[in-house]
Amino acid sequence: MLSVFKNNPVLAELDIFVTQPDQQWLLVDSLITYTENILKKQPGYTASAIHRSFDGLRVINYVQWQNQADYDTYINNRDIALATQITGFLAPDSHLYEIFMSEPADSPMQITADEGQLINFGIFKLKDPANQPRFLEFTAEAIQQISGQSGLMTTHFHRSLDGARAINYGLWSSQQEYAKMNANPPMAEPLLQMRSLANNEFQMSLYEVVFTSVLSPAIFP
Rank of each mutant, 00 (worst) to 15 (best):
L31M: 04
R78P: 04
L161K: 09
S205V: 09
R58L: 03
F202A: 11
P92I: 08
G151K: 01
P43N: 11
S147Y: 13
A140T: 05
E98G: 14
H156W: 12
S147W: 13
N67E: 14
L31V: 05
G148I: 04
T87F: 00
A130I: 13
D22L: 07
K6G: 01
R159V: 04
K40D: 03
I111A: 04
K125I: 13
G116C: 09
D72M: 06
Q176N: 06
Q117M: 07
T33I: 01
P133A: 03
M109W: 11
H95P: 03
I60S: 01
T139W: 08
R78T: 15
G163R: 05
S213K: 15
N67H: 13
F157L: 05
N8Q: 06
T87I: 03
Q203P: 12
S147C: 07
W172T: 09
T139S: 07
G170R: 09
A49K: 01
K40F: 02
R195M: 14
K180C: 12
A188W: 09
A12Q: 13
R195N: 13
S147H: 08
Q144E: 08
P217I: 09
D162M: 14
Q110Y: 06
R58W: 05
P129K: 05
F211H: 15
G122D: 15
N37K: 07
T19I: 04
F211Y: 15
I50M: 11
Q66V: 13
P21I: 01
D114P: 00
N199P: 02
V28M: 01
S94A: 14
Q24Y: 06
G122S: 14
S107G: 06
E115Q: 11
Q20S: 12
I123H: 13
S160H: 10
V4K: 10
Q24W: 02
I143H: 04
L192D: 05
T35P: 07
M1W: 03
L26Y: 09
N120G: 06
A183Y: 07
T73P: 08
A188G: 03
L206W: 06
P186V: 15
P133I: 09
L191C: 00
L118A: 10
F135N: 01
T112R: 02
L2M: 15
S150Q: 07
P9T: 14
Q85M: 09
S107L: 07
S173G: 08
I99T: 06
L171T: 03
I143L: 13
S102N: 01
